[in-house]
Each structure stands twice: as structure tokens, then as C-alpha cells.
Design a protein around this nucleic acid. Structure first.
Length: 689
DNA sequence: GTAGGGTTAG
């Protein structure tokens, strides 16, 4: 250490005396002539390095005011004692170029650590441009063959997404080690090129490099990207065998990647086995398992694991909460989601971006649009996803005008819309019958350089079709610049069902069947079209065709959550232990609603039978069973929330309106398309859905 | 020097 205590205090007079200040001071103190020469440069460099250096910058007044200015020295080089400190003080907004400048001028002694620290900083702050300059500078230095530094540069390119630069550097490196291979594999794995990552593995092995836990974690992540490809899935199982053979499968990093790989392929039993076999578990292993169940829509299991995780004193993170809220959103478990939300508040956690968006989404998906808005208002950061989630909430509630206003507010705030924004907006317009505005927004997409995807075309066909413009919708399909998919024709078919157009409906159904012969949806719709028009023999033909081709219709189900338990009902099902009470309840309700004007609409029964039989069939649609059950078991006066896996049928829709009036209950039904808020004899959809 | 987990549509 030098004897510079006295001038140090004078320089930093009135400013915080941090180590960074002292460090910069050493540069000046060691070479008094350099102060003359480099004064401005050093002050500028200081201002780039740290906030405390910025603080001392004004104190570096003209040299004559400094205590050492009158002295002279012949020293020609500046030696920084603590280079590490200098680099660590590099400010995020700084260019760092002055460190290189000081190196060029011989004011700093070159050292691999200096390059290393600069590159690490560039990687962490994703400062690619500066990183490239440091790379060029490094290649001119005597350390240009240093493998550790070259691996660090490779990692910088990978983390910044410059995969071509990374590959070029990798190919040009005369000497590689296992970290070099791992770094490139990781770059490909993290940057959406899983196949490239997997391809490197056999090559690496053939050259005699043996993978470590880092390599295997990245390879497993890459193999997890292929969830729907059986051939690739076998890569995952082969890697599992490899990990097992090398004794890595119980390692917490490798094991977490392994269980995540199985979870993403939908193999939850295998994922759970890997989890149980882990020697030590951490929050990532718990989160990977919870997220797996959440993705599969098994909210009950995800929640069970969440509470178990807490009991075992693992700290849930925003990753955990995001998965839990997502699971509650998809299954409509609002009550349990609220418990977890309460836990976040109680533990003092902030509602940060990612987690906040899933929480917002959960409230929106569960029909609590006011709660969703409250969360939106409290978000610490709002991004395009936050705005889109609210837009979706308006769309699903049929609040088209509110969605349009929200979009305008979004633009005013300066948030740039993306493809999903427009999808939500078009959906909102479609469900609210806002034909002109929907067409306007579709054209507006081009102003934002967003190329309409197939989903946008599907929504446009839906918009035109619902509004009754069936032939215009067909023309629109014919003029599409991309090949229409089954979903596009399916949207037209749905509209034909709504407007009872058999001719066009049959045509659309044929197109859907050509493109997707395994989907039961179009055939069910076609059968419905015939049945509702009384053409029973045609309806029967379609049913026979379905049977012969092995196409199976997904059974209609409804769910209702009572006291944290989800109850499932299937049409005409008698599996529920309370089924007798439920039927009796519905019969009583049925009498009461008929007294105030309910008339069963038997066109929704798809089989040929007499009027009385058809009424009986209608009585036991799954949503009616769920409603009767909820009326028996839910707290008096509470809102009843029912979820359905297909669209609510017209007769049930009418019946539930009357029930809301007779029983004085708010009833919310969420079907695959939207929410229906029934209150006092009417529905929020205005009978347009 | 290199690793694993979370969001919005349909």
C-alpha cells in the first residue's frame, strides 16, 4: 500500500470514500505527470466505471488545485494494484472502452484476468458490441491462445444469441476442452437449436471428451424440446441411460433436467420417479415437477406438491407461483389459487412481471375480471403480456367495446402490440359481433409489420361467420395467401351450425374431414346441423361414418369447485354419490323454471327419439347436473362457477338464465369459447356466442 | 470458463 492517505481524503472531500474511489485515485497518485496528461481521460473513465467514481469526478478539479500538482515525477507507467476492483466497478451504462484505451497506452499492465473480468461483465450485461471489441483486443494480445478466455468469449456469444459467431469461434479454436464443447451445446440448447446441441454430443464423445453434469443438463434440456417426436424422445431416454451409467442421475442439476425432460413429454410417472431418486432436492427440482403437473392440467397434484414443498421448508419462488397460478387458471380452481395468492402476500413477495401475469391470467380465466384489473393496476412492471392478458379477459367475457378501448389505451401508453395482441383483439370483436372494427384491426396488423398467422385467419372466418356473412367468409378463405387448415374450415362449419346453413356446412365439414380425418369435432357439428333440421337419417349416416372410421367424440364434461374440491359431471352419468339428490333437485328446478317461461329446446338432442325422451336426455346434460349439485352444496347466495370442456348448449344456456332468476344466484359458466355470466334471467353474452 | 425450473390465443 502507498502512503496516499492524506491526498485521498482531499480528493474525495464531501463524497463517499468507497474502495472504487481509492482505486481510481491510485492511478492518479502513482504518476503525477499522467494526471496532467490524462486528467480529462481519467475523469471520464472514472465516470464510466462506478457511481462512486462519478461522485469523485467533479472533485478532480484542474490539477493545480490538487495537493500533488506542484510535484514532479518521471514515472512513465501507471500500475493498478487491484485490477479486479477496477473491472468490478464497471458501470452498466459505461462503454468500458477506456480500460482498453489504458491498456493500449501502456497505462495498465495487460493480464488475462483483466480480459476475463471484462468479458464476464459483458456477458452478464449482454453487452455484445463491447464484448466483440474486447475479443478483437484480446486476439492482439500475447494471451490470445488462453483457452479459459476463449471459452469465456464463446459463452458470451452464446448468451447473446450470436450462434453463428459462436460456431465460427468454436471451429477456429485450435485447442478445445470439455468446457468448450459444453459451452456450445448449452448455447444451442438455450437458444432454440436443440437439434444442433444433440448433434454435437456423439461428435464430442468420438473425440474422447467425457461430459460432466453441465453438459448433461444442457443435453437433457435440448432433448426435452422434442416433446411430440417419438424418434427424438428416444434421445431423452438414451441420455437417461447414459446418466444412470455414469452415476449422474441423482445429481440435483442433471436429475432436475431429467425429470423436466420427462415432464415435458407428458411422462409424469417417470418424472416423479427421478424426483424421488434425487439425493438432494432444491427449489428447481420441485419447480420442474410442479410445472410438469401444471402443464398437464393436473392442478390438484401441482397444489398438493406445492403445500408439501412448503412443509419441507423449501422456499417457493416466482417460478413456483407462476406454475401454480397457471394450473389454477387452466382448471378454474379459483379458490385454491386465492389461497396461494394470499400466501404470496403474507410472505411479503412482490407481484413481479412473470408471476404477476400468471396471477392476472388466473383471475381473468376464472371470471373475476375486476380482480384481474386490480392485479394489473398493482403490477410492479407491465409488459405486452400483461396488456394482452387483460385483453383476453375482455374477449372471453364478450366485452368487445371494452377490449377496443383497452387496446387504444395500450397504444397511448406506448406498449407495442404483438401478434397475440391482435389475436385477442380480433377474438374480442368476433365474440361481440364487432364486424367492421375486427376487419379494421386485421388490416392494422400490417402497420405494425405483423404478418397474420393461421390463427388470425381462423378468427377472421369466425368473425365473418358469426355475424352471418357465411359466403363472405368462404370467399375470404379462398383468398387467403396461406393454405387453409382444418381449423379455418372448422370456424366456417361452426358458423354454419349457428346459422343453420346445411349446404355450406356440409361443404366445410368435408374440407375439415379431408385435412384432419381424426378430429371428431367437424363430424359432431355436421351431425348437429342435420339433427337440428330434423334430418335424422343424414345425422345417423354421419354418426355411422364416425363409428366406422374410429373417430371418437370427446365426452362432454362439466366441473364445479366446492370447498376446494373439484367435482366432475358427464352427461347422463350416474357415478356421483349424490346423483339421486342431484336429479331430484333438477326436476324441482325444472318445474319452477317452466312456470316462468322455460321451454326445452329439443333440437339440441342429436338422436332420433320422441319428444318426451328427448326432454329427458336434455335434463341430464353435464352442466345441468353440475348446477344442481352446486345449488345443493355451495354456500347460500354464493356465486356458482362451472367449467365445461365444450361449448355450452343452447338449451342449457336458456335453462341457466331462468335458474339465475328463480334461485336469485349469479352463475358463471366458462366454456371453451368464453364466459357466460348469468344473473337475474339474462346472460352477459346477450345470447350471442 | 460451462448447467436445470415460470406468462398471454385457440
Amino acid at each position: 500500500m502507498m502512503d496516499g492517505a492524506t491526498p485521498k481524503q482531499q480528493v474525495v472531500n464531501g463524497f463517499p470514500k468507497s474502495t472504487a474511489c481509492i482505486n481510481i485515485y491510485y492511478i492518479i497518485y502513482n504518476n503525477r505527470k499522467m494526471v496532467m496528461k490524462l486528467n480529462c481521460r481519467v475523469v471520464y473513465a472514472c465516470s464510466q466505471f462506478s457511481t462512486s467514481a462519478v461522485a469523485i469526478a467533479p472533485a478532480l478539479l484542474p490539477h493545480k488545485q490538487m495537493p500533488w500538482a506542484s510535484s514532479s515525477s518521471s514515472s512513465s507507467s501507471c500500475i493498478i494494484q487491484d485490477k479486479d476492483l477496477l473491472c468490478r466497478s464497471l458501470h452498466p451504462s459505461g462503454t468500458g472502452l477506456h480500460v482498453l484505451d489504458l491498456l493500449d497506452r501502456g497505462s495498465l499492465e495487460p493480464h488475462p484476468t483483466l480480459y476475463h473480468l471484462l468479458l464476464k461483465k459483458c456477458t452478464r450485461l449482454r453487452k455484445l458490441k463491447l464484448g466483440k471489441i474486447v475479443h478483437a483486443h484480446f486476439l492482439d494480445s500475447i494471451f490470445r491462445h488462453d483457452l479459459v478466455i476463449l471459452n469465456t468469449i464463446l459463452n458470451l456469444y452464446g448468451k447473446c444469441g450470436c450462434l453463428d459467431d459462436a460456431r465460427k469461434l468454436f471451429d477456429e479454436m485450435p485447442l478445445k476442452d470439455m468446457v468448450t464443447w459444453t459451452t456450445l451445446i448449452t448455447a444451442y440448447s438455450q437458444r432454440d437449436r436443440p437439434f444442433h446441441a444433440l448433434l454435437l454430443f456423439p461428435h464430442m464423445l468420438s473425440l474422447g471428451f467425457f461430459p460432466n453434469q453441465f453438459t448433461l443438463s444442457s443435453l437433457l434440456k435440448a432433448s426435452a424440446a422434442f416433446t411430440n417426436t417419438p424418434h427424438i424422445h428416444s434421445h431423452g431416454t438414451q441420455l437417461h441411460a447414459f446418466c444412470f451409467k455414469c452415476g449422474f442421475q441423482s445429481n440435483v442439476y442433471v436429475g432436475s433436467s431429467l425429470l423436466d425432460m420427462y415432464a415435458r413429454c407428458g411422462c409424469m410417472d417417470e418424472a416423479h420417479l427421478v424426483f424421488d431418486a434425487l439425493h438432494t432436492k432444491n427449489d428447481v427440482s420441485w419447480n420442474a415437477l410442479i410445472a410438469g403437473y401444471a402443464r398437464k392440467g393436473q392442478a390438484d397434484h401441482a397444489l398438493w406438491l406445492f403445500w408439501k414443498m412448503l412443509r419441507q421448508e423449501f422456499q417457493p419462488s416466482h417460478f413456483t407461483f407462476s406454475s401454480i397460478f397457471g394450473a389454477c387458471a387452466s382448471t378454474g380452481c379459483l379458490e385454491q389459487g386465492k389461497w396461494v395468492h394470499a400466501h404470496v402476500i403474507k410472505s411479503g413477495g412482490e407481484i413481479v412481471a412473470f408471476m404477476g401475469n400468471t396471477l392476472l391470467h388466473m383471475y381473468a380465466k376464472s371470471g373475476s375480471i375486476e380482480d384481474a384489473k386490480r392485479i394489473f393496476d398493482r403490477l410492479v412492471q407491465r409488459d405486452v403480456v400483461s396488456w394482452n392478458s387483460m385483453l383476453t379477459a375482455y374477449a372471453q367475457h364478450g366485452l368487445g367495446k371494452e377490449a377496443v378501448q383497452w387496446f387504444q389505451e395500450m397504444l397511448r401508453t406506448g406498449v407495442v402490440p404483438n401478434d397475440i395482441t391482435f389475436l385477442c383483439l380480433l377474438t374480442a370483436c368476433s365474440r361481440a359481433g364487432l364486424l367492421d372494427q375486427g376487419q379494421y384491426f386485421f388490416k392494422l396488423m400490417r402497420d405494425y409489420n405483423i404478418e397474420p398467422q393461421i390463427s388470425h385467419y381462423v378468427t377472421m372466418v369466425d368473425l365473418l361467420g358469426r355475424a352471418g356473412h357465411l359466403h363472405e367468409a368462404k370467399r375470404f378463405i379462398g383468398e387467403m395467401p396461406i393454405k387453409p387448415t382444418a381449423a379455418v374450415w372448422g370456424a366456417l362449419l361452426g358458423a354454419c351450425r349457428m346459422h343453420k346453413n346445411m349446404e355450406l356446412g356440409t361443404y366445410a365439414a368435408e374440407r375439415v374431414f379431408e385435412l384432419d380425418p381424426h378430429d371428431s369435432g367437424p363430424l359432431v357439428l355436421l351431425s348437429n346441423i342435420y339433427a337440428s333440421a330434423g334430418r335424422w337419417s343424414d345425422a345417423a349416416k354421419v354418426r355411422k361414418m364416425m363409428k366406422e372410421s374410429g373417430v371418437k367424440k370427446e365426452p362432454a364434461c362439466s366441473w364445479v369447485e366446492i370447498e376446494n374440491t373439484l367435482h366432475v359431471f358427464v352427461a347422463n352419468d350416474d357415478a356421483h354419490p349424490q346423483i339421486e339428490e342431484i336429479r331430484k333437485m333438477w326436476e324441482e328446478i325444472s318445474v319452477r323454471i317452466k312456470q316462468i317461461g322455460y321451454v326445452p329446446d329439443t333440437s339440441h338432442v342429436l338422436f332420433y327419439m320422441d319428444q318426451q325422451e328427448r326432454e329427458v336426455k336434455l335434463q341430464y346434460h353435464s352442466e345441468k347436473l353440475a348446477l344442481a349439485f352446486a345449488l345443493l352444496n355451495a354456500p347460500p347466495g354464493s356465486t356458482i362457477r362451472i367449467k365445461k370442456n365444450i361449448r355450452v348448449c343452447g338449451d342449457c344456456h336458456s335453462a341457466i338464465k331462468f335458474v339465475s332468476q328463480v334461485m336469485r344466484r349469479e352463475i358463471i359458466v366458462r366454456d371453451t369459447n368464453r364466459f357466460h355470466h348469468f344473473y337475474d334471467g339474462s346472460c352477459s353474452c346477450g345470447d350471442y356466442w
